[in-house]
């Protein structure tokens, strides 16, 4: 959308990028994507290792992203975001200096095509995975920021939602580093642009909406009302409706809170059939118990009458 002032350079397959500082050589295989900051290429190193390489003439922006990747690598547990392999500069034949970093190449498909292949009810599970990862990130004092469909991918066996672009990751309490209008709660007049967990949860709900409405939609005169209506009108989002609405209104203070809420709702939906059989069984059990109780009552009274009769007989004999 923004015609930038400098021509964006294109590297052909077979081009060679050699590092100035660490002396690693990378051969470009193909272009993977182009963003506001730089271009990402699939690359092969001399030892045959395939990785993703992001290159840009903006050294500062590349450095900022590398800093984020370094911080993410310190978070315990399953990896958040791609792992960082190398950081370096490359001077091309004209003497222009570019900065680049090399990261793990995460293979997978976009969320929408994954759900098309494997079924829509996977959405809930993937959202829960995302909430779990976000909880760990927030716990470390960071917020994802630019959470959107383009920045995640579903890797296969087992299906898992992975983050591929973490450039917007911001320390909690600061201003969001990078965002996309459609996903930004400031744009929807639903809150500030301060980095806090609820900012990510709003974007997560917008991710679901973007999936439900691939062509997106306008803000309208009353943004909050537009969002509510769009959530309610979508059939695909039906099982998550209440949770999404709450997230859009800033009702969740933490990822964990939303995760609990969502998993409760999901369990209810999948258990609905099971539930009906369970309640039937319960009813049977209950009536059996009642019968047992009444039997006990008759036994008791019988024993009391017998004892009373016995006393009566003894009394009679004694006289």
């Amino acid at each position: 959308m923004n015609p930038s002032k400098k021509p964006v350079f294109d590297l052909r397959p077979g081009s060679i990028i050699s590092g100035k500082w660490h002396r690693q050589v990378y051969v470009v295989q193909k272009q993977l994507g182009k963003g506001a900051i730089g271009t990402v290429y699939l690359c092969k190193r001399k030892d045959g290792r395939v990785s993703a390489l992001k290159i840009s003439e903006k050294a500062a922006s590349i450095t900022t992203e590398v800093n984020v990747l370094k911080h993410l690598s310190k978070v315990q547990g399953t990896r958040l975001g791609p792992s960082l392999i190398d950081v370096d500069d490359w001077i091309d034949q004209y003497g222009t200096c570019y900065s680049f970093y090399v990261m793990e190449y995460v293979q997978g498909v976009g969320l929408a095509s994954f759900l098309r292949q494997r079924g829509k009810n996977w959405l809930g599970v993937l959202l829960l995975q995302l909430l779990k990862d976000l909880e760990r990130l927030h716990h470390q004092g960071w917020v994802f920021g630019d959470l959107k469909l383009d920045n995640v991918i579903v890797s296969s066996s087992p299906p898992r939602l992975r983050w591929i672009d973490v450039g917007g990751t911001t320390q909690i309490g600061r201003s969001i580093k990078e965002y996309t209008e459609f996903y930004d709660r400031g744009y929807w007049q639903a809150g500030t642009r301060k980095a806090e967990p609820s900012y990510d949860l709003f974007a997560l709900a917008m991710m679901a909406l973007h999936y439900a409405y691939p062509n997106q939609f306008d803000r309208g005169r009353y943004p909050a009302r537009t969002l509510r209506e769009k959530v309610r009108q979508s059939k695909v989002l039906m099982p998550y409706q209440a949770c999404l609405e709450k997230a859009l209104q800033g009702g969740y203070q933490s990822s964990l809170e939303m995760q609990k809420d969502l998993s409760n709702k999901l369990l209810k939906v999948t258990n609905q059939k099971l539930d009906t059989t369970i309640t039937k069984r319960n009813k049977q059990q209950r009536s059996q118990k009642a019968m047992q109780k009444s039997k006990l009552f008759w036994m008791e009274s019988f024993v009391i009458i017998m004892v009373a009769f016995l006393f009566f007989v003894i009394y009679y004999v004694a006289i």
Binding site: R174, Y187, R193
Partner: peptide, 11 residues
């Protein structure tokens, strides 16, 4: 207005 939202999110 949007600019002011962004800038006022800063410390």
């Amino acid at each position: 207005i949007d600019l002011s939202i962004s800038m006022n999110a800063r410390i």
